[in-house]
């Protein structure tokens, strides 16, 4: 039983990582109606920027907020500079550009800050809660919760949040009610990059900082967002914790799996969930009359 509890808590701790990134995934999805495969690498790059600032002598929180602002502007710039000219290109072409961005960020980070693994400071005290779960994980949980509330409020109660959803869902109609669709996309990119940056800075103390830190985690982030329901930020967070727990329990209790097949099993479980709940566990079913 102790082992079980321990595994659940470890799962929750990992889940906090996935939930954090899943939020960024949902954010960009609400804004551009697609996944951004470069999201993980953008978050990684942001985290390096923060690391460089801290290494340069800035206090943690100054670097933290500066990174958020830089990431926001960077995300905005990527949309305006790279994607704006491609608005009429097919979606599959956009996916290729995402892949291109992944390669660029990954490789550039390696070239600037080399490939050695770096430690990244946590803003929370060392130690753990009753020896079961680290204080950093608990802190991260609350950061995720704050972001979740922020995003929820933004989409639900602000004019701009609603306009952003409208622009993503139906750009033509959005223009016809006076929404500047292009800038909504850019804003969505900016916000997603900023949230990704927070996720990166929260994750890095656990997984350490290196250019490839996000490759695996982003997959879990996507999976969490999809399992929870891509249209629901709350679902994404719940999905994150669920994926974390499933992954750990499967790895521990099914002997044939062990740690080598953990990822596979998690993915298969996720796909199974989707077969029965195709809109995710918490996603709204979208009804459209033909």
């Amino acid at each position: 039983m102790d082992l079980f509890l321990q595994q659940i808590l470890t799962g929750l701790a990992n889940g906090a990582i996935y939930a954090c990134l899943a939020l960024a995934v949902v954010m960009i999805y609400q804004a551009i109606d697609h996944f951004n495969f470069a999201q993980g690498e953008m978050a990684m790059f942001s985290t390096y920027i923060c690391w460089a600032m801290i290494a340069g002598g800035l206090p943690y929180w100054v670097a933290f907020f500066a990174t958020i602002i830089i990431s926001f502007v960077g995300g905005l710039a990527i949309e305006r500079i790279i994607f704006k000219p491609l608005h009429s290109a097919p979606v599959l072409s956009h996916v290729v550009v995402f892949i291109g961005l992944v390669a660029i960020f990954n490789s550039t980070a390696g070239a600037i800050w080399d490939h050695t693994i770096k430690t990244f400071p946590s803003p929370f005290p060392d130690g753990s809660f009753a020896g079961l779960i680290g204080l950093h994980e608990i802190g991260m949980f609350f950061v995720t919760l704050i972001m979740l509330l922020g995003i929820f409020g933004f989409f639900r109660f602000t004019r701009i949040g609603m306009a952003m959803q409208a622009a993503a869902a139906n750009p033509d109609s959005a223009g016809l009610v006076g929404i500047r669709v292009g800038w909504m996309l850019a804003l969505g990119w900016g916000l997603a990059a900023a949230i990704g940056a927070v996720a990166g800075m929260m994750i890095a103390p656990i997984v350490f900082l290196d250019p490839n830190m996000m490759l695996g985690i982003l997959l879990y982030g996507f999976a969490s967002a999809i399992v929870g329901g891509i249209s629901s930020p709350g679902g994404a967070v719940a999905g994150g914790f669920l994926v974390g727990i499933i992954e750990n329990l499967a790895g521990t209790y099914i002997p044939a799996i062990g740690s080598e097949l953990k990822l596979t099993v998690a993915l298969i479980l996720i796909v199974t969930v989707l077969l029965f709940k195709p809109n995710g566990l918490f996603g709204k079913t979208i009804v459209t009359r033909v």
Binding site: G100, L101, A103, S107, G110
Partner: peptide, 15 residues
């Protein structure tokens, strides 16, 4: 060192 970055840039240019 930057081969992936160059590949990425080429990809984007091609698109």
């Amino acid at each position: 060192g930057l081969s992936y970055a160059i590949f990425g840039v080429i990809l984007i240019l091609v698109i």
